[in-house]
Design a protein around this nucleic acid. Structure first.
Lengths: 224, 224
DNA sequence: CGGAATCGAGAACGAGCGTTCTCGCGTCCG
DNA sequence: CGGACGCGAGAACGCTCGTTCTCGATTCCG
């Protein structure tokens, strides 16, 4: 169907579908051969090892997600709508039949402590998304676009995990409404920086430190 | 050292440390035998298969996280402080040297589509945490404690993922500040339900629907 | 003391996987 | 026409892993 129907593309498409649905370690090269119709010999000519194929899979996902995000955001001009468009895109993706969580979070959890290339690809993707969010946050005139972008990034990842586990798109809505509240709060703080809306003990600027208690979870953790 | 030093406990402790740090599929039973000092024969007497050991590991993590959360929250009486204590606990955990993300998200991503027991354990844990959050949200007098609890759950999971990937405890702070904003917003909405603080087009109650665009991500997705 | 049960260490077994090699078969250039 | 090359299908190899079996050694109870 596609004009770009090279061997590399066919292998990558099959690997993407299988890796994303079943996980990397559960999918063998023979399954990729069966799904792509490309012999093992040619697969290993394009990708010298399974690890290289995994990294190419992640880079492909990164390109896809970034362009999809940018296209979806480009439909809006209002800064708030542009931010919320991210979460609308998330909803549509999460609501689709073949959503299985964030491929990068999954790959990191599965192979994190053992594959340098995977760690790099995951970090690159997440930091690219956050950079993109930072630009959107800056457009809204938020007082601290970096902080707001980090919060939005937390919402994005959390919504993907929650949606995958609960098998429901509702977390995308929860994240969207939370994002809207954060946007309004940042805008309110930018309009009236002298005082926040509520809270009897509130430093006017900056984000206060967490009160680090004496507990050390590692000592009582099961992993200790 | 521990009084409860049964064979089962020693096996579970070793399995917990290894599964959590390296992932389930990357750890073989021989490594658990070496780490626990319990022979394979006795391990298989306690746990009839590796899958059973994995499920016991997840249940143990569930008990640990729930009791740690409850203890930490019990130190506070103010409803807002009780909610924020959850994120302070998260910060301490995430900041520890042996934090490797959420064991349940990791296990689900790794084994999700293939192990019924794992899926059940993960869903039980996540729904238990959300029930706990719902109780805290109810105490704050929020208009929609269910919705607020879902938002907090998204923040929790997102902060764990972000912290694990970025290898930094900062996402816990981002989540905490976002949680505080959401709390204040919910309280404001409860105090003055007629009108929200900002936004020219705002339904006063309920959470609006996302504008589902004509795009279908599955068609342009790499997995399609 | 004696036999029976238990135990730990490790071999064994079967399966799966990543990667490479073999072997026919078709194809293309001289 | 002919030989060298490329190709796909699949076997083969080496490794790992989950699970079970073997085999001495130890221990426990009558």
């Amino acid at each position: 169907m596609n004009v770009d129907d090279t061997i590399e593309t066919r292998v990558l498409s099959a690997a993407d579908a299988l890796f994303y649905q079943y996980g990397v370690q559960s999918v063998g090269m023979d399954r990729i051969r069966d799904a792509s119709g490309v012999s093992l010999k040619k697969i290993y000519q394009c990708f010298p090892s399974k690890g290289a194929l995994v990294e190419a899979y992640l880079r492909r996902r990164d390109r896809w997600a970034r362009t999809a995000l940018e296209e979806r955001v480009a439909d809006h001009t209002d800064p708030e709508s542009r931010v919320l468009a991210v979460f609308d895109w998330l909803y549509d993706w999460v609501d689709g039949p073949d959503f299985h969580g964030c491929a990068f979070i999954n790959a990191f959890g599965e192979l994190g402590a053992g594959s340098q290339g995977v760690v790099e690809a995951v970090r690159e993707h997440k930091s690219a998304v956050r950079t993109f969010l930072r630009g959107l946050a800056f457009e809204t005139g938020a007082t601290d676009p970096d902080w707001l972008a980090s919060q939005l990034s937390v919402l994005l990842d959390g919504a993907m995990s929650n949606a995958s586990i609960s098998d429901s798109p509702a977390p995308a809505r929860h994240a969207r409404s939370a994002a809207r509240t954060l946007l309004h709060d940042a805008a309110v703080a930018a309009d009236a920086p002298a005082e926040s809306a509520a809270g009897p003990e509130e430093p006017p600027a900056g984000h206060e430190e967490p009160a680090a208690g004496p507990r050390e979870p590692a000592s009582t953790a099961p992993g200790g």
